[in-house]
Amino acid sequence: MGGLFRAPKPVIIPPPPAPTPAVAPPTPEQAGQQTQAEARSRAARGLEGTIATSDRGVLAPLPRVARKSLLGE
């Protein structure tokens, strides 16, 4: 019966990761500059990010066009 059962392989547990060094929080001046830079970039891409529509706009009705009712007309 020694061939039917095998001893389980040992589970290898990896060591815990090394702690990361603490990063100093930004100064209020740096935080203000970063906020202003984000606002400028958001404002610059705001115009480009709008949806371009045709001259009739989104809510204007479609022009009336004679439509075919049967194939071959």
Rank of each mutant, 00 (worst) to 15 (best):
M1L: 10
G2E: 07
G2Q: 08
G2V: 00
G3D: 14
G3M: 09
L4M: 11
L4A: 13
R6Q: 11
A7I: 11
A7G: 12
P8L: 13
P10S: 11
V11A: 15
I12C: 12
I12R: 01
I12M: 12
I12P: 07
P14S: 04
P14N: 06
P15Y: 00
P16C: 01
P16K: 08
P16E: 02
P17E: 03
P17S: 03
A18E: 07
A18M: 04
A18W: 07
A18N: 04
A18V: 04
P19Q: 03
P19E: 08
T20Y: 02
P21R: 06
A22Y: 09
A22G: 06
A22Q: 12
V23Q: 04
V23F: 00
A24Q: 11
A24I: 00
P25V: 00
P25F: 00
P26N: 01
T27G: 00
T27S: 02
P28K: 01
P28Q: 00
E29K: 01
Q30W: 06
A31L: 07
Q33M: 05
Q33S: 05
Q34R: 05
Q34N: 07
T35E: 06
T35V: 10
A37M: 04
E38M: 03
E38H: 02
E38Q: 05
R40F: 12
R40G: 11
S41H: 06
R42T: 09
R42M: 08
R42I: 07
A43F: 14
A43G: 09
A43Y: 14
A43L: 07
A44E: 14
G46A: 09
L47R: 14
E48Q: 14
E48F: 15
E48S: 15
G49E: 14
T50A: 13
T50R: 15
I51G: 01
I51F: 10
A52C: 08
A52P: 12
T53M: 02
T53R: 01
S54L: 09
S54G: 14
S54D: 13
S54T: 09
D55G: 10
D55H: 11
R56W: 11
R56Y: 10
G57N: 04
G57L: 03
G57P: 05
V58S: 03
V58K: 01
V58R: 01
L59W: 14
A60K: 00
A60E: 03
A60G: 03
P61E: 04
P61A: 05
P61W: 05
L62K: 00
P63I: 03
R64M: 15
V65R: 03
V65S: 09
V65H: 06
A66K: 09
A66N: 13
A66R: 08
R67Y: 05
R67M: 11
R67P: 07
K68F: 08
K68V: 08
S69H: 12
L70T: 05
L71G: 10
L71S: 11
L71A: 13
G72S: 06
G72E: 08
E73C: 07
E73Y: 09
E73L: 05
E73G: 11
